[in-house]
């Protein structure tokens, strides 16, 4: 009976090109969905930004100031980037250091909020360039 049944069904066939169609489907390369990749990247960046801002707010700004920077092989601590001290005349001076340039030729410019003139900050360990305030005043 098996042979009889198989013989009867021997003429029942799929389309001649079925196998070709199947093999052709495997040739199709998977397209990269750039929109999806962009959306995912943006979402990750957004989540990270929200996380950082939240942590910074929760730590009263300590989070960002605690981020360490390394220039010219030297680790920059927050003390060196922002320094506050009292002068002999009783003024409190806040000194901000801006690191300019890159590589070995970087220099540091300082700004002060008080009246006292700030000395060249060799103590920071950098080759520093202090703005000439007298020229600016004239």
């Amino acid at each position: 009976m098996n042979n009889r049944y198989k013989l009867a069904f021997s003429g029942v066939r799929p389309s001649d090109d079925l196998n070709e169609r199947i093999l052709a489907m495997t040739e199709k390369k998977r397209r990269v969905n750039y929109k999806r990749v962009l959306a995912l990247t943006a979402a990750v960046i957004l989540i990270l930004a929200i996380f950082c801002i939240s942590v910074n707010a929760a730590t009263n700004g300590e989070f960002f100031t605690s981020i360490k920077m390394r220039f010219n092989g030297e680790l920059q601590t927050p003390d060196k980037v922002k320094k506050t001290y009292d002068t002999a005349s009783g003024h409190t001076v806040e000194e901000r250091i801006y690191i300019l340039g890159d590589g070995a030729e970087f220099f540091v410019r300082t700004e002060t909020a008080g009246e006292e003139e700030v000395a060249t900050a060799d103590a920071f360990g950098f080759r520093m360039e202090v703005p000439d305030t007298t020229e600016a005043g004239e």
């Binding site: 069904f9 029942v12 799929p14 389309s15 079925l18 196998n19 199947i22 093999l23 489907m25």
Partner: peptide, 27 residues
């Protein structure tokens, strides 16, 4: 594919009684 496509087509045809549906199933 070469060994099984026709065999699978017949199985699908026994369910669906439809040529096009059976080919879709095999794919």
């Amino acid at each position: 594919v070469a060994r099984n496509s026709r065999r699978l087509f017949l199985i699908a045809l026994s369910f669906t009684k439809n040529h096009d549906d059976s080919e879709d199933i095999v794919q």
